[in-house]
């Protein structure tokens, strides 16, 4: 059992959850994830770690409302408990002085790139960060990321923000303005990571993406999260979650990501009917 310290809506559809898990907090590194189960009947789902606090012994994630499990999470209140909170899982991201690193985060990934920005900055990198949002009211953590980065950019399809670019266009723009970019790290939905990888391929910039496929145990036991990288089958939970975006079989990823699309809808309808008659 793990206690919820905070759970609040950051922006529409995106929530923050802070959980008391001192052992996880002590061990976690940027790029890792936890597996959480909202209640006894819930699914085990992976959440990227967005922050942690050693004093409070807490770990924070940002998640997007998708199916039943995330809807259940979004109703939790401080003081509630979840039956499963396990981690930190997956390999930590590579942190060293690469030179100039461009981070791109969208959706829950805006949260997930925050520990990377801090660690990469600390390792001596020039850190450029792009936050991708659809509209201005979906922006969050820009202050935190601004503090952790050398420069912060926003890509949005919103004239209020004077931007109508999707993140790949922003990457190209930043790459043109910069003398050299040594690495790009993109975290967000599969489509965002795919588009970022496609944008950097012709530029020849090594691009790391953090996969979030369907998982069950998260310890390499089941193989639900398998993907193809460099022509070989890998398990995202133990071989990843970080992979070279130019090596991945994206088509397979998209298809496997949608494995349970129909079931997710069925499950959510069932849950809504039983809880909100």
């Amino acid at each position: 059992m793990a206690k919820i310290l905070d759970r609040r809506r950051l922006v529409p559809n995106l929530h923050l959850i802070e959980v008391h898990a001192p052992e996880v907090a002590k061990k976690c590194r940027p790029g890792q994830f936890v597996i959480i189960m909202p209640d006894e009947r819930g699914e085990r789902i992976p959440l990227s770690i967005a922050d942690w606090n050693l004093e409070k012994g807490s770990v924070t994630s940002v998640f997007i409302l998708v199916g039943t499990s995330t809807h259940k999470l979004s109703l939790l209140q401080p003081g509630d408990e979840v039956p499963v909170y396990v981690g930190p899982l997956g390999k930590p991201s590579e942190i060293e002085n690469f030179g100039t690193v461009l981070l791109a985060g969208g959706c829950f990934g805006i949260g997930a790139i925050y520990p990377l920005a801090r660690a990469l900055k600390k390792a001596g990198n020039r850190v450029l960060t792009i936050i991708d949002v659809k509209a201005n009211y979906l922006l969050y953590w820009e202050d935190k990321l601004k503090a952790a980065s050398d420069r912060l950019f926003i890509s949005a399809r919103d004239f209020a923000l004077e931007s109508k670019d999707y993140v790949p266009a922003k990457i190209e723009e930043v790459a043109k303005a910069e003398p050299k970019i040594d690495r790009v790290v993109a975290i967000g939905c599969t489509y965002l990571m795919y588009r970022c990888s496609m944008a950097t391929k012709p530029l020849g910039i090594k691009t790391i993406v953090s996969l979030n496929p369907v998982m069950v145990d998260g310890t390499g036991m089941c193989g639900a999260c398998r993907c193809t990288a460099g022509g070989q089958t890998k398990f995202a939970c133990v071989d990843g979650p970080d992979f070279d975006g130019h090596q991945l079989d994206w088509d397979e990823l998209f298809k496997r990501r949608k494995s349970y699309f129909d079931d997710e809808i069925r499950s959510l309808c069932h849950w809504e009917r039983s809880n909100f008659p």
Binding site: E43, R44, S69, C222, G223, E264, H270, W271
Partner: peptide, 23 residues
Amino acid sequence: SANEYLTRVNLMKAYDFPNYDTP
């Protein structure tokens, strides 16, 4: 994999989906 199939059904009780959330 047999591990995934059996884990979904036995540990996560997918045979009782959607009363349990794991399909």
